[in-house]
């Protein structure tokens, strides 16, 4: 069975100007219980790769530069 990609608006946003992943920081990636945050190879910054969020907030709370925002996902708003 062939597989298609579909688009999804994800709740976690990362401010690339504030993110210091390029300095070796992986805090938000480490603390995510669902492992959905990854380094974007093209920018070197963190981003939400999988739409599997529990909106539990450690990524935002633990980010040293306040670069991460957890929004309430659209279907819940």
């Amino acid at each position: 069975m062939p597989i298609a990609n579909h688009h999804s608006a994800v709740p976690v946003t990362v401010d690339a100007d504030k993110c210091i992943a390029d300095k070796g920081c992986t805090v938000c990636i480490d603390v995510c219980p669902l492992d959905v945050l990854w380094i974007d190879e093209s920018t070197g910054k963190a981003h939400m790769k999988y739409d599997e969020c529990w909106y539990c907030m450690p990524c935002e709370a633990d980010c040293p530069t306040d670069a991460v925002t957890v929004n309430i996902p659209y279907l819940l708003r």
Binding site: V31, C32, P33, D35, C56, P58
Partner: peptide, 12 residues
């Protein structure tokens, strides 16, 4: 499975 720093039911 995740990271002990923030895992489980009481992660926050």
């Amino acid at each position: 499975k995740a990271n002990v720093k923030r895992s489980g039911a009481i992660s926050m």
